[in-house]
Design a protein around this nucleic acid. Sequence first.
RNA 1: GGCCCGUUCGUCUAGGGGUUAGGACGCCGCCCUUUCACGGCGGAAACACGGGUUCAAUUCCCGUACGGGCUACCA
Length: 509
Amino acid sequence: MSNIRVRFAPSPTGPLHIGGVRTALYNYLFAKKMGGTFILRIEDTDQGRYVAGAEDYIIDSLKWFGLLPTEGPGIGGEHGPYRQSERKAMYGQYALQLVENGKAYFAFDTPEELDAKRQSEREKGNHNFRYDNVTRNEMKNSLTLSKEEVSRRLENGDAYTIRLNVPKDETVTFTDLVRGEVSFQTNELDDKVLLKADGMPTYHLANIVDDHLMEISHVIRGEEWLPSTAHHILLYQSFGWEDTRPQFAHLPLILKPVGNGKLSKRDGAKFNMPVFPLKWDAEKEEESFLGFREFGFIPAAAINFLAFLGWNPGTEQEIFSLDELCEAFSIENIGKSGARFDYDKAKWFNQQYIQATETKALGKMAMPFIAEKGFGTSEAYIASVCDLMRDRAVLLTDFAETGAYFFEEVQNYDDQNIVKRWDDDTKAAFNKTIDLVANMPEFDADSLESTIKSFIKDNGLKMGKIFPLIRIALAGTMKGPDVFKMIALLGRPGTIGRLRKAVEYFDTV
RNA sequence: GGCCCGUUCGUCUAGGGGUUAGGACGCCGCCCUUUCACGGCGGAAACACGGGUUCAAUUCCCGUACGGGCUACCA
């Protein structure tokens, strides 16, 4: 029985975008489904692109979604360290091993020389120069230089990289779990740099070495890696690790809501929607982002939405808890084509979750947004407001926004609808209603409803004229939940106060 | 440009050689209703195109078009 071990291996180059979260999610789901292990590995081999705080951000994001790894930096595990920068020492040995068995070679060409070469090729009309099994013959490397010259350069401390010695005239074929059989001609492949001049490995080397050492069984990653998978297969062959080579599954990309290309961080501002899990503060305003959390998403809802971007259970069920997702997940049901990011659908999922969340928990979820507005009240009251408003809420921010009147005085009255109804008769009825409410023996929604309704009926008044005015008096707007429930929640003093204040205001409209 | 991957309603997708091509979001209409919602019911809406293979193709094959990705001493 083989052990299922998968990893999520992001680079800490900035805030983790939502596509990365989905990759993490699919890895997590697969691991849980198979009773395997989900590992987090930080691929920080490019010190030039390292961004402080990015690693914490990745972990915080996974934590928020509930996608906790069982092995990783700060978590531990038997295959650590889980940060590639801390594994630096070992990669060079592996690269050297490849040089020794002829699967790789030293290359002394400097970046400047390479640039010059590309430039001169361009001038000759060749727009795609690559360092491959043909062009390497005219470059400076241990395949073209004499043994003595190579030793001399090495001893001299000349800068060098180690490149993969891609064989000629071969076909590399592998079975991708999502796409089926995929093959590449080695003559189309370049001799990828394995070890950089600074001694750090490139993604390709570090990835293969670590996946091997960490006993990864399945590599589930974005489609952008599909073209380089041929190199990775070659690397497994070169190391003699074919028997334990992981299986590959390349995920379709997440595309922009409209237009061409994949979803980018700029789309967040463009479409006023989140493309990151959590907020990210950068020095520059345009580099700072709000996340799904700040937009008012429930993490489980965001997860549910993300899971369905490129995967489906094969049934008509759409609402899945994380546990249900783990149970239902299978790689076979992952789609092949890119999926557009549909923000309306994301909001719909969140709405479904808001409706299904138990009242007390919903109150807790809405709490931060209510506190942010400076509305200080009790947990119980917030929960009651949330329960009353839940049918009208799509995002967690809605409670504090469209339900603001539950926490503060009415800020604006709907004048148009006041004018249509406010006259001497209604004013008289309105005032009598205030007395009625003030003297209610019971103050629950049902008693209020029957008492006020029968009063209106007995006096030959129109409900369509009085109720909207009461509503506006309490909330300022025509929109909102049942008036009697609002009255009950606002309480007697609160209701009477608003009603009295409204009478004064209505006269001025 | 080269290589690789893909293509079912506007969007996410189910399906698969013979189906009224199913669901969801969004949109429209009706119902419920003191408002707005929620909910219920209904509607418009898709197999990119051209060739094969086949009794039969949306489904299989090949092209084309379109879309996407890769093409760094970045991941």
